[in-house]
Nucleic acid binder design. Sequence first.
DNA 1: CAGTTACGCTACGACTCGTAGCGAAAGCTC
DNA 2: GAGCTTTCGCTACGAGTCGTAGCGTAACTG
Lengths: 238, 238
Amino acid sequence: MRRPPVISLTTSPNRRISPVKRPDMVNGMQCRSRSARTGRPRSAAADAAILAATRTALVELGWSKLTLGYVATLAGVAKTTLYRRWAGKNELVVDAVAELFDELELPDRGSLAADIEGVVLQFAAILDRPEAKTALMAVVAESTRDEPLRERIRTSIVDRQKRLVLEGRARAQARGELPPESDPADADRTAALIFDVVAGAVVHRTLVSAEPADEEWVRSFTRILLVGLTGAAADAAQ
Amino acid sequence: MRRPPVISLTTSPNRRISPVKRPDMVNGMQCRSRSARTGRPRSAAADAAILAATRTALVELGWSKLTLGYVATLAGVAKTTLYRRWAGKNELVVDAVAELFDELELPDRGSLAADIEGVVLQFAAILDRPEAKTALMAVVAESTRDEPLRERIRTSIVDRQKRLVLEGRARAQARGELPPESDPADADRTAALIFDVVAGAVVHRTLVSAEPADEEWVRSFTRILLVGLTGAAADAAQ
DNA sequence: CAGTTACGCTACGACTCGTAGCGAAAGCTC
DNA sequence: GAGCTTTCGCTACGAGTCGTAGCGTAACTG
C-alpha cells in the first residue's frame, strides 16, 4: 500500500494561498523580517504529492469515505505532516480541486457565441472528472456552515471562473455584440447573474441530472442565453 | 437531552417511498399474500419524529457532523430502530429534505413571466433554509458514487421540480405565449435544458455565491430566460 | 558551529459506526 | 382469551477514524 516516498530534496513551498497553519503568519503577512525564514523549509514536493494523492483518493473512495490517514499513506507522507499544513479535510480538498481549474482559459474564438461555447465546454470537461464531481458539491455543502471555507472556495475557485465572464463581456462589447454598460453597479449585478446562470446550469446538468454537457447541449444552452442577453440588453436600451 | 418519547399508539407507516429495508418486500412488491402483514406495525409517529429530528440535527450540526446516534436521541428513538428503517445517513437525509419540497406548487398567475417568478421564488425560499442548504449539496455529492441514491433523489426531489417546468410550458402554450412543440423528443430536451438552467441558477446563486435570490434577482433572471426562450423559439420557427 | 523549523514515527483517548442479542410491547388470527 | 409475528428499547461490542503529543532525526540559516 505504501507508495514510494517523495524525493525530499526540495525548497520553496506555498504556491497558492499558503496552505494555512503557519504560526509565523498573521492575516497573510509574515511577522518576522521578510523571508527571514530560518530552519528546514517545507517540502514543495510533499505539497504536490499530497494534493495529487487527495485527488486519487477522491476517485477511489469519494468524499465521505476519504480519510486523511489514507491520503497521507498514498502520498508517502506522515499523517502529522498533513495536519501541520491543512486544518482539515475541507481545506485540503478545496486546494486539491482548485488545481483542476488552473487550465480554464478563454481563447478568443471571434464571436461571443463561440467564446461562451468554448468556456462552457471547458468547464464541463473539468466537472466530468470523478474527483471534481464528488468533491466540489461536498465542499460547497460544508461551506454553508463555515464562512472561512466559503471564502477559500471563493478566492481559489469561484473568482477565477467569474473573471472569464467579465473578460468575455468586455470582448463582446469591443466587438459591438453587446452595448457598453452605463451603470457600473448594474453591470456588476448582471455579470454575477450571468455567472450564476452559466455555472449553475452546467453543474446542475452534470451532477443533478447526471447527463453529459455535450456539444449539442452546450449549443442549445448558448443559444438561449445569447438571445436572452442581447434581447434583454436591447430592451433595456430602448 | 432525551426528548419526550414518541406517543406510540400508531398504525400504517410508509408514506413516501417505503423507507427501505423491509425484508418481506422485493422490488417494491410484497411477497406474502397482499397486506398479510402480521405482527406489530411500524410506528408512523416514529417516522415523522425521526425525519423532523434529522432536519433539526442538520440545522444544529450540519451534514458532516450529523450522527445517526444523535438523531435517534433527538427523536426519542433507539438507534437500532433507525438502522432498521434506513440504510444509512444518505438515505435518511434525502427523505428528510424531500419533505421540504412538498410545498412546491405552481399557481396560475396569468402569464409565463409571473409563473416563472413565482416558482423560482418558492424554490429560493426552500433553499434558504439552513437544513436544505447543507443537506442538498451533500447528498448530491454522495450520489455521484451511489447510483441507487441518485435514483432516490431523482424520484423524491428532482422529478417533482421538473414537473413544474412541464406544467408551466403547457400553460404558456395554451395562452399562446409559446408555440406548440412539433418534435416531442426535442420538446423533452428543451424542457430538461430549462430545468437545469432554472434550478442550477437558483442553487448556484444561493449556495455558491451565497447571496439571496430575492425579488430583484429573480426578476432579472426571469427576463433573460424569457427573452431567450421566446426569441429562440421564434428563431426555430422560421 | 548553534539555532530553528520540518519531518517520520509511535502511541494515545475520545468518538462514531453498524450489528448482535435480549426481553418486552403491540398488533393480528384463530 | 391463546398463540404467532414483528417491532421496539436497551446494552454491549469490535472496528475504525480523529486529531494531538512526544520524540529523535533531517534540512537549512547565519
